[in-house]
Design a protein around this nucleic acid. Sequence first.
DNA 1: ACGAAAATGTTGAATTTTGTTGATTTCAGT
DNA 2: ACTGAAATCAACAAAATTCAACATTTTCGT
Lengths: 252, 252
Amino acid sequence: MSKYRSQILQAVDMRGTVSVIELSRLLGVSDQTIRRVSQPLVESGDLSKVHGALVSNRMPTDPPFLDRMNLNREAKVAIARAAAALIGDHASVAIDTGSTSGFIAQALRARKGLTVVTNSAFVASTLAIIPGNKVSMAGTQLRDHDGAAFDRSAFEVIERMHVDYVVLSASMVDAQAGFLVHEQCEVDIANAMMRNAQRAVMAVDHSKFEPQDRRPALRQPELKPGDLVITNRAPPPAFAALLDRLDLRIAT
Amino acid sequence: MSKYRSQILQAVDMRGTVSVIELSRLLGVSDQTIRRVSQPLVESGDLSKVHGALVSNRMPTDPPFLDRMNLNREAKVAIARAAAALIGDHASVAIDTGSTSGFIAQALRARKGLTVVTNSAFVASTLAIIPGNKVSMAGTQLRDHDGAAFDRSAFEVIERMHVDYVVLSASMVDAQAGFLVHEQCEVDIANAMMRNAQRAVMAVDHSKFEPQDRRPALRQPELKPGDLVITNRAPPPAFAALLDRLDLRIAT
DNA sequence: ACGAAAATGTTGAATTTTGTTGATTTCAGT
DNA sequence: ACTGAAATCAACAAAATTCAACATTTTCGT
């Protein structure tokens, strides 16, 4: 069992297919090494080999949603690790949709006995198949943007639960306005989750502190003092006031 | 119980895998010491050792469901191709849980404008993120066996719909009894789906025609004459009577 | 403070992994 | 089918890691 095993699996699972050369650069080793250490993985059927690349045998591939997951991938993985380190075995967690939340779900596969409620089918299917987890999928009608539900039944499921943590994300952070998203329905779900959770964990990579091409206009519900913000670089000083009473963690 | 124990565990858990040298620098001790104090952790199963590094055992290891997807993978892929070829763009489909259905979902990513209802979170998240698809997730409480739902709301969602095709699977085929599964709830869902579908597609790879180690005892609802059975090898002659009035296709 | 026991560091040989080279195979375009 | 570019494979040398044994330091009870 090679030390690169999990990294290769993760990279290939995440992107569907990735070239041998790219993997070698990613892990900082030679292409030959990639070929060598991936051999057992293709023999066990986890991966397939094509000329020039490895392809995942187990995950959905290509569509736009997964493209977004590859944006700032390293930052998101680091944040996900930090968030997962915070959440212990047997915790209960509400998880919203969004690519960072997707990574956090992946990192949470390491936990045992989680109770999870989410409106994202991706998060649900990631965590549901871990033995011992109890996962509730909130909502029925899934939007194609990201496979998340925002219908009435989603709220009904969320309102029935009370959890230790809620994992939230945002599309942008504004020094005055706070954490912004694009759709009102996302705010509504976040609100419902926060009302039924002890502590909020807001996960935003560093790019969210910069202006976006399509500026989101809707404010996420205000965080309580003591709620957690996880990011991967120290935010610019302009955000000091906003983050003042929150527990800020920088993941590396 | 060494004084470094918890630090090593935390670091390795956090990052998934971390090199012995790096750990030694992190804790300010020699590499040999790391090897020595990590030995009990390896023996107790918390960590694994690879050449040059320690890896966390609580990290994403293949959950059973994904293992099952790798069983008879080629047969299932062939069947999935055949099933997907049958189902055109803009069709409406109900899909049950089961690993073969998972592959069919993957093959259906090539279709456009599908309307899908499924009680499997895996199928839902696979197809929901295809632009233009309308996917309904039936059910809330997901079982860890395969991430599928069988609660009352699952039935309510299925009963509301009427679709062109229903894609079903079975754990075993018996020449007398027909298509068998392990759980009554699976039969119930199949029944609900069949009542609300024009035509059934039963997908079973060749291994299902052989006796299983754990024999399933529950009969799927009877197929109508003209319903489809897709498999990947000609079934043994003993099954001729069973398949008599059904439309049998052999995928290669 | 003393000595025994445990823990840590150091060394060098054995083992494993890695990068490089050149021959061979595969792939895409004519 | 032919050709050049790219990818794979096999083999070997170089580098890194491990292991075992011993020297040294730290810890702890008396």
